[in-house]
Design a protein around this nucleic acid. Structure first.
Lengths: 186, 186
DNA sequence: GTCTATAGGCAGATAGAC
DNA sequence: GTCTATCTGCCTATAGAC
């Protein structure tokens, strides 16, 4: 692991614990047993650290969603795949997800635009899947936007629960999330 | 409205938009067309503003939940009441809910302890309702903790959705949330 | 109740030695 | 690659005039 990657890893943990704005460059340096000035030999700014953390996970979501959307399968199967992808990313990047959820607004310029675009595309793709399911009769058309919001909220907050519950088994978590989130919509 | 209440209202909006740490006393003062030093004639510190915002809403939740728990009704009816209470509070305090969700960790001492205690009690009360429903056979016992988490996440994030969707009608929102969140658990 | 002036501290970031 | 020293600027908060 390069020194830059080390910085990003340590920063992820601190941002997760206290939030981007509360963590200083001195905090990150102290956690690595070096001085704040030394960090700048590896990164250009505090914001660059945040960008690397957030955009990496955002790209994982984007790629994962595009793969699901391009599949030739039923809407329910796609929703299942999306849920499973969320669980996978949550397990692998639970700390980064805190920044993605809470500190994305501290990104600037292209990074902010890129993030917002990815998030909008992601949400739109999810909406299309739900619509596909309603059209084909797989999903009941009762409250499509509320269903979308409910599933989204649950998946988005999963990282908090995963940390709190003591990192349960991934496959059990997937099965439970799929059964609880799908049961209400079919 | 007293000057102090004005400060809290303006601060709520700014905290909602940018987060507690990002908003300075100068920002709050500027939004009120006065100087930062003048704020201190009405409040003792920036943290006091945050406390007032968060603890007021937290107490609403506590009182509301105690009322529901003490009712002599079915578990499903209680869950419905909890959902409706969340919608009511979301509609009345949507900006304060951002601070409650994202900035509670910036509270200190007694305020922090009081908040954490209220949140734990609240969650425990909700858990008891779910358990009551499982014992009586009203709620299926498939994944009680996942059900609890799923409903909680959705309700907790509702304030974001409410602002984004353009403040829909309260009664429709209540009906939709109840139907979507209850359907999956009975 | 608001102002100006300012204290005291910490933030992000740079320069240059080793 | 890390250090010390330091710049500049913003932060919360206070003192005291009006």
């Amino acid at each position: 692991m390069s020194r830059k990657e080390e910085i990003i890893q340590v920063a992820s943990r601190l941002f997760y614990e206290k939030g981007y704005k509360t963590v200083s460059m001195r905090d990150i340096a102290t956690a690595m047993d070096i001085k704040a000035a030394s960090l700048y030999n590896h990164i250009n700014s505090k914001q660059e650290i945040l960008s690397e953390i957030i955009l990496k996970v955002a790209e994982e979501f984007t790629v994962g969603m595009e793969k699901v959307v391009s599949e030739n399968s039923s809407a329910i199967k796609k929703v299942e795949k999306v849920i499973e992808m969320h669980v996978d990313i949550t397990v692998n990047y639970s700390e980064a997800l805190a920044s993605l959820n809470n500190d994305w607004m501290h990104l600037e310029k292209e990074d902010l635009l890129a993030f917002v675009k990815m998030r909008e595309d992601y949400e739109e793709n999810f909406r299309k899947i739900i619509k596909q399911g309603i059209d084909s009769g797989e999903i009941k058309s009762y409250h499509p936007e509320v269903i979308l919001f409910s599933i989204f909220s649950t998946l988005r907050t999963l990282y908090l629960w995963y940390q709190k519950r003591g990192k349960v088994d991934v496959n059990i978590l997937k099965k439970d999330m799929v059964s609880v989130l799908i049961k209400g919509i079919v």
